[in-house]
């Protein structure tokens, strides 16, 4: 089981511009996969297709044996909430909520915030944010904000973690910290990680690298 992409193609805009063509990819559970390539190579687009945030123009994406294109929207939302975590280049924390509340937002969707609170606190402590649980995002540094975003992505103990340039807006020290946390989640919690990066040093931390050139896997 895992994620499978079969002959996946993606076109966007009007007139349509092809971004991806004939992508075939299998990602096994527990894998740490890095999607690499130049800007505009289609790596982020592929990540969003694999993570159900976007829909394919051709082909199909299967997650745990289920064709995403044929799943009801309600089911996709539930699956995403329970099984997927996202980290973006920018933290996208909700400015009105404190650290702990931000981390518990996915759990709030399924009414499990009380149940997940202990785990959320332990994650924050693990990420050196134990004393900053009640601070607002604007009271945190860039590295801290991104670590809160990772804690939010992991709070539901997801099966899959999708990271789009998670170190893109961080300095090298914070970038390294973030990468260690992601690698640790993969190794210790057996979370399947699919990460987009154009930094070769961070890509090398992954167990497998998939390089895209002009929308095709090389």
């Amino acid at each position: 089981m895992g994620i499978t992409a079969r002959h996946v193609g993606k076109m966007i805009g009007e007139p349509p511009t092809r971004i991806l063509s004939d992508i075939n990819l299998e990602i096994n559970n527990g894998e740490f996969l890095a999607l690499t390539g130049r800007s505009g190579s289609g790596k982020s687009t592929l990540l969003y297709l694999l993570s159900t945030l976007d829909r394919v123009s051709q082909g199909e994406v299967q997650i745990d044996g289920q064709n995403v294109g044929k799943m009801e929207p309600e089911m996709i939302h539930r699956f995403r909430n329970a099984n997927m975590g996202f980290i973006f280049q920018f933290h996208y924390l909700l400015a009105e909520l404190n650290t702990l509340e931000n981390v518990l937002m996915p759990a709030r969707k399924s009414g499990r915030q009380v149940e997940r609170e202990h785990y959320a606190r332990s994650l924050l402590k693990q990420f050196d944010l134990g004393d900053k649980m009640h601070r607002l995002p604007r009271q945190l540094s860039g590295g801290e904000q991104q670590r809160v975003a990772i804690a939010r992505a992991l709070v539901m103990e997801p099966q899959y973690l999708f990271a789009d340039e998670p170190t893109g807006s961080l300095d090298s020290v914070n970038g390294e910290n973030v990468m260690n946390i992601i690698r640790d989640a993969n190794e210790r919690l057996n979370v399947t990680v699919i990460m987009v990066t154009h930094e070769s040093d961070f890509a090398r931390l992954a167990k497998r690298q998939v390089h895209l050139v002009d929308g095709k896997i090389q």
Binding site: S51, L53, F79, R80, N81, F86, L93, L94
Partner: peptide, 12 residues
Amino acid sequence: KDIAILRSMGYD
């Protein structure tokens, strides 16, 4: 951006 992140968390 809040809408985007909420949707990624499974909010419909």
